[in-house]
Each structure stands twice: as C-alpha cells, then as structure tokens.
Design a protein around this nucleic acid. Sequence first.
DNA 1: GACAAACACGAGCGGTCGCTCGCATTCTTG
DNA 2: CAAGAATGCGAGCGACCGCTCGTGTTTGTC
Lengths: 223, 223
Amino acid sequence: MPDNPQKEQPRRRQARGERRIAQLLEAAASVFCTTGYTAASTNAIAREAGVSPGTLYQFFPNKEAIAIELGDRLMHEMREAYGEALAPVDPATPLEEAVGAAVDRFIAFNCDHPVFFALMHGPDIPGRIAEEHDALHATLVSRIEALLFSLLPDAPPADVTRTAHVCLGVYKAGLELVLAHQGAERDAYTREIKNVLIRYLEPLVGDRLGAPEDTGDTTTRTA
Amino acid sequence: MPDNPQKEQPRRRQARGERRIAQLLEAAASVFCTTGYTAASTNAIAREAGVSPGTLYQFFPNKEAIAIELGDRLMHEMREAYGEALAPVDPATPLEEAVGAAVDRFIAFNCDHPVFFALMHGPDIPGRIAEEHDALHATLVSRIEALLFSLLPDAPPADVTRTAHVCLGVYKAGLELVLAHQGAERDAYTREIKNVLIRYLEPLVGDRLGAPEDTGDTTTRTA
DNA sequence: GACAAACACGAGCGGTCGCTCGCATTCTTG
DNA sequence: CAAGAATGCGAGCGACCGCTCGTGTTTGTC
C-alpha cells in the first residue's frame, strides 16, 4: 500500500490557483450575503467570479466546502484580530468598559465582514458551519459566565448561565439592528445596545462600586 | 364579455374539502417548522397530510398560497386572542405591569403556534408573508413609540423610535431563547426578558415615579 | 338512477441546481 | 523544447422540485 487511503494527495497549487481561490471565496461571500447559503447557486458564484462552473470545482469538492473554507478563514481572522475580546476580563474593570469594549469589537468585525452574519445566522447552513457557530457561541457564553461569576461568586450557576445566554441574545439582536443602519444612526444603536446590557447587569453587580444599596451585604469594596 | 376577468369564480367547497384544507395547513405548519419554508417541498407537505400532490393543488394554486393562508389564519387568531396587547396602553399603568403583560401575551402565542416564528423569521419567506411581518413589526413599533411618547413627551422622536426598535429586537431575541427551553427554565427566561426591558426603560421613565434624581428638570410629576 | 360538480390520484413535464467529464490551454520542470 | 501537471472551459447528466393533466371516485341535486 504505497498510499494512505485517508490522506488526500496535496495538489501542488500554482500562484494562479491561489488567486482563483481567493477570487471564488470573495464571489461566494458576495452571493451568500445577498441570497443566503441555500439559495446561492454554485453557477452564480462562478459567474460572479467570472469563471466557469468546472473551474470552481477544480478548487472546491462541493458547495459546502466553499462555505466551510470561508467560515474557517473568517474564524481565523476573527481570532487573530479580536481574540483579546474573548480573553478573561480583569474583574477590576468597570462594567461599562468591559461591555463597551466587547460590543465595539464584535460589532466592528461584523460590520467589516457582513458575510459572517449571513453564514452564522442562516437557518439552512451546512452542518460544519453550524458546528463552528455553536462552538463560538459556547465559547462566548462561557466567557460571559466567567466574567459574571467573578463578579457574583455566590450566585447560583444556573442563573449565571441563563444571564450569559440572555446577554449574548441581546447582543445578537442588537447586531441585527446595527447592521441594518449606517452612519450616525448605526452608532446610536451601538450605544443603545451597550445601555441595554449595562442596565441589565448593573443591578446584579452594581453594589460592588459606588452605588451601595442597603441590601445588608458586607462584600469588600475594590478601591 | 360574460365573465369578469379579475373575478375568480368561488368554487363551492364541500365539507370534505374544508377538512382537507385544514389537514393540509396543519401538515404544512409541521413541515415549515422543521425545515423552513424554502426547504419544505409541496410533495412532503402532501405526504405529511396523507394525500397526493394533485390533491394539494386542488385547494392551493401554489406553494406560496399555502404559507399565505397559514399566515393569514395565524394573524387572525393573534388579533382575536391578543389584540388587546396591541391596544394603546393607559399611561397610568406601572411600567412593570405593561411590559410584563405584553411579553406574556406574545410569548404565550408563539409557544402555542411555533410555526408563526418559523414563518416570520425565515430568510426565504415569500413576499406576501414578509409584507405581513413588516406590517406587524411596524404596528408593534408604533405602539411602543406611543407608549414611550406618553411617558417622555419631551424626548426627541428619533430617540423614541430607536428605543422602540431596540425593545422589539430584545423581545425577539428573548422569544428565541424562550422557545429553545421548556418548563421552569422557559419561565425563568421569560422573567429575564422582562427584567432586560424594564431595566432598560426604567431610567428613561423612572423619574415619573418614586425615584427622583437631581437632574435639575422641573417637569411636573403625576401623582 | 342520472348527471354534474367536487374531490382524489400519481405519473410525469419543464426547469433548476449541484456537479461531472472530456478536452483545450497555460504553467513548471528538466 | 518536450512532457506532464495544474488550470480552464461549458455542455450536459442525474436528481429533485413545483406543478399539471388525464383519469377515476365520491358527493350533492333532481
């Protein structure tokens, strides 16, 4: 057995091929954005890229692979550019700052790459992309959970998890509103989303700072 | 010209036909729920209803008409059962009560009719359903605007509109979370959505009642 | 019972879509 | 330059889908 059955022989790509791949992915992003994944035909993607259907299938085994490759590149770019937004948050950071920074980063990424939203929120996406989305979703939820738990060590875990899911859901709804507007209105909606999240979380953690309520707690204050 | 060109002759339906129509709509609701509108094939709907494709087209001119009829019936049922949730709100009602009642009503309706969510939020719905959804959306936004305006007569209209859109977006995100859970967890998420909305709106209207802030305003207080 | 209208069937038509295949062209390598 | 690999083309295959049509069955009316 000279060849391993599972190992696909790595075709030696020429520079031309790499250019075609990038071109096809760009065309696919455009078509996915305007029509969604299922409604996007491979012939339309090839036409948008100015090549023939056969050429498209020279570089991608099937339609799903196009979306997967696009999703992988977006994920990589996201982790590279905004990975720190996923990093554990310093508990000393004011709530407004932490929420504002995270929201700004993710909204900026989605505004720069609208196809990300189209791929992740389509109801008809291929299984692999759905897996990636679920993984990202779970990562974000656990990050938010960690932040909340560091602020509310005595809260029931189920409540923390639920609150984290609500935060992420609110962010996604806000993202949709933000992407639907432009310019000053877009900024105003971004501001509103931060307000929603801050006002939602403030009563939970607000007693740590500056706004003491007579709830009888004796938790230590930072600063 | 003995016949009016635009007037479709009303076929005399027998009781059997009405039963078939209800049966087909129920099957369509089931298929739409599980696969979405575009991915649902008319053959699958007919199979689910236990009839042949030809029978389906005895009662519906095309696939879109099935979704439209389903949407119309849902809209009618919604207006009949929960129309009062759309009615103008008495400005004297406490915020918690108004928000809680509206959220409860709409969430109950969506839990009873999950196909409503599938039809209204699919990205591939036919134009007529999209129109109905937009109309409903606009109605809800203007209702919320009216409520907000009655509480904040001196706020810029653009801000009121934006706040209304944010409220509706938050509600929709919450609806998705609520529908994804069951039992006690579902109730807990419902409670959280109300919290998000109340805490978001409270700082805007809270100064009308009990929690005066030294913002220097001299607006008259009710009660 | 006679007759027409409504109901029911399911093979199949026209069309689209994902994808293939045979062949031409361009690049790399020796 | 020659040979082979990578790239490029586009007609078209097979499958599926929305929908039709000819035919047969049930129901209502006289």
